[in-house]
Computed example of a mutant assay.
Amino acid sequence: MYKLQNDDLLCKKCIFQKEKLFGYIDKKNSVTMATLGPEGTTSSETAKVFKKYIEDINKLADLKINLYDSFELAINEVHKRSADFILLPNAYGKMTNFYWDTTIELGFVFTNKTPEYGIAMLDKKNLYDKPTLTISTCKAVEHLLQELMDTTEFKNKSYEIVEANSTTKSLMLLEDGKVDLALTNDTSLKNSKAYFISNTKYTDVLWSIFMLKTS
């Protein structure tokens, strides 16, 4: 079996970028990471994982997490130097825009398991008589909708999709009474009266951290 060596060309590039990012953190100590919010999104939970990772390595490091309504708003904060890094999943539909942004560079990549995703509801008593249900979801997990709906008692109902910016915003639409059901994750449900009525699903996702390009 082939063993990856430190002088491997691909490995060397990864190590160089990691050392550059970590060196920046070591030098500054107090840094800010921007990502998608609000609290409870998969991005915010993954940011906490990276925060713990960094602060375990460097006891002097203090990584602050700032949450925004979109990744585009988050990267604007990096461009304005109000944040040092942006964290986003490679599964994001507009990820290519970040790779082709010549003002930033890839600093680090890692995999992290997502929370459990499922279809949540608050009150089903008024749903049986509705010919069509409304379901909120963010674009990144919209493809899971039919699969998860098929595990609910409403699997034979037709539905209309209402798009949300994140899994947490999807839940908020349900709590505000704007939709009948919401595709969300279990971290968003922590402080909610909503509950899953479908099977749940998770996966491993590759995450990227970008920083402003330096010479």
Score class of each variant (00 low, 15 high):
99 Y>A: 09
42 T>G: 11
28 K>F: 00
109 V>D: 03
4 L>I: 15
15 I>V: 15
8 D>T: 07
93 G>S: 09
199 N>K: 12
1 M>D: 11
104 I>N: 00
64 K>C: 03
178 K>D: 06
190 K>G: 05
62 D>M: 02
33 M>F: 02
32 T>N: 10
101 D>H: 06
29 N>Q: 15
87 L>P: 06
50 F>T: 04
190 K>D: 04
21 L>R: 07
152 T>L: 05
44 S>N: 04
146 Q>Y: 03
91 A>K: 10
14 C>R: 14
73 L>H: 04
154 F>S: 11
115 P>H: 05
26 D>T: 09
15 I>R: 14
4 L>E: 09
65 I>G: 05
185 N>V: 03
206 L>P: 01
82 S>A: 08
50 F>P: 11
44 S>W: 00
98 F>T: 04
50 F>W: 11
57 I>S: 13
78 V>E: 03
213 K>Q: 07
183 L>W: 06
34 A>K: 11
161 I>L: 14
55 E>K: 06
93 G>P: 07
141 V>Y: 01
101 D>R: 14
100 W>E: 14
135 I>W: 02
87 L>T: 05
4 L>W: 08
19 E>D: 07
154 F>D: 10
178 K>G: 02
200 T>I: 04
197 I>H: 01
210 F>M: 06
24 Y>A: 14
206 L>C: 08
15 I>Y: 10
73 L>S: 07
2 Y>W: 04
25 I>A: 10
152 T>C: 05
130 K>Q: 06
22 F>Q: 10
76 N>I: 08
91 A>S: 13
31 V>P: 03
119 I>H: 06
213 K>C: 05
88 L>N: 04
92 Y>A: 06
46 T>L: 11
195 Y>K: 12
39 E>V: 15
143 H>C: 15
73 L>K: 12
191 N>R: 12
24 Y>L: 14
133 L>R: 05
12 K>D: 01
190 K>A: 12
44 S>R: 09
2 Y>M: 07
98 F>Q: 06
208 S>V: 01
192 S>Y: 10
52 K>S: 06
78 V>F: 02
145 L>K: 13
111 T>W: 00
196 F>D: 07
137 T>R: 10
81 R>N: 12
25 I>F: 05
189 L>H: 10
88 L>R: 03
126 N>A: 08
25 I>P: 08
21 L>G: 00
101 D>C: 14
57 I>Y: 02
149 M>I: 11
50 F>S: 02
172 M>I: 15
157 K>R: 10
58 N>C: 10
123 D>L: 13
17 Q>F: 00
23 G>S: 12
189 L>A: 06
198 S>G: 05
182 A>S: 13
9 L>Q: 06
96 T>W: 04
20 K>N: 15
3 K>Q: 07
62 D>W: 00
209 I>E: 03
189 L>D: 04
135 I>C: 05
84 D>P: 07
37 G>L: 06
150 D>N: 15
51 K>Y: 00
121 M>S: 08
206 L>H: 03
191 N>A: 01
154 F>C: 07
129 D>Y: 09
67 L>D: 05
62 D>K: 11
209 I>W: 03
144 L>S: 09
20 K>E: 13
126 N>R: 11
206 L>N: 09
125 K>I: 03
20 K>S: 13
94 K>W: 09
136 S>M: 07
80 K>N: 15
175 E>I: 13
94 K>R: 11
206 L>E: 12
11 C>S: 11
129 D>L: 13
106 L>Q: 01
172 M>A: 10
100 W>L: 15
41 T>N: 03
149 M>D: 01
91 A>G: 03
190 K>V: 14
